[in-house]
Design a protein around this nucleic acid. Sequence first.
DNA 1: GCACTGATGTCAGTTACTGTCATCGCGTAC
DNA 2: GTACGCGATGACAGTAACTGACATCAGTGC
Lengths: 189, 189
Amino acid sequence: MARWQPGAPDRLQQAAMELFAERGFEATTVADIAARAGVTERTFFRHFADKREVLFFGQDLLQSAFVGAITDAPEGMSAIALVSAALEAGAKGLQEARGQSHARARDAIISANHALQERELLKLAGLARAVTAALVARGVAPARARLAGDLAMAAFAAAFQQWVESGQTRDLTDLVHEATSTLRDIATS
Amino acid sequence: MARWQPGAPDRLQQAAMELFAERGFEATTVADIAARAGVTERTFFRHFADKREVLFFGQDLLQSAFVGAITDAPEGMSAIALVSAALEAGAKGLQEARGQSHARARDAIISANHALQERELLKLAGLARAVTAALVARGVAPARARLAGDLAMAAFAAAFQQWVESGQTRDLTDLVHEATSTLRDIATS
DNA sequence: GCACTGATGTCAGTTACTGTCATCGCGTAC
DNA sequence: GTACGCGATGACAGTAACTGACATCAGTGC
């Protein structure tokens, strides 16, 4: 008999999502989460840097999708084309990774709390920097790459919000294309 | 004789900036800040919602500059033209408000700490939403306005970073123009 | 069998933040 | 000029996030 059940991080994340959905983020203590997952509070903090981080598990997968698409793109593409490829890969990855209902539940929790929105913005900025670095590696000038990275995240965030609000009746990839097109339209008007 | 010295918020902010610069954000306790400002810890939290907020005092002025420029702009301007006007007003306001050295010192403190960067991103997102709302009030379609607001903040943040890194030898307004121009260039390439 | 590793439990401690009540200078009404 | 209320503060107790140090114990390699 094993001394402890494996998969503590997953159990903790699930317990946290349930409790946040039931009582809200602030009304849930880390001790509550740990108890439901069958571990101690100290173990929670061994797996997650802080209470908020438990909701941002696996964002590195999304980052890999973005960066990989840029790195693997054929030669001779413009910055905006590289960004489009990255967004498409990210949209596909997000739709496959956890499923639509999970994304929606998670979004509802985050939207209900300022501290969580703050963390999400930090993660989004991290993605933007990763895209920027990938673009620089492809020869895009740093100042240009930074703006392109921010632009990519603006389009992705806008598309994601519409996706969630639409009840997922729309395809995320289509929404990303629309957002990119709108951005182009704004800049050239 | 007054029972307490006036201007507690200002004294607290100055004490916090000094201590953060000397020891760093995490190594400074709220009790330290309060002691240097000559008040108690409890008074600190009466003026600032949390320890980080003390560094973000007066961002509403910047927001007013952005929003006012959009609201007061002449009729018939495109979304990108309204955004440009807002950015110009913001750049001017920032250069006049506190001075360059203050902006640089503050930026150094924030750059050295993740939690503070997180808060800054939240403030920036708040500005983006304010710009979005002002654009909607001017008749821009919501989805378009959201992207334009994010675009504005991307340009402003990029220009601000270059301004700080350049040692302020360059004019912020010029850098904002360059960033806007680069954005247009990316979108149309 | 035995040392070693790795995930966990235990426990004490710091600090951010909050709720509540007391204090007291100052202006205002009367 | 005195009573009254207001507003900013102090005092103090309490909660919960997070950290460091040490103990525990199943499995693993030798």
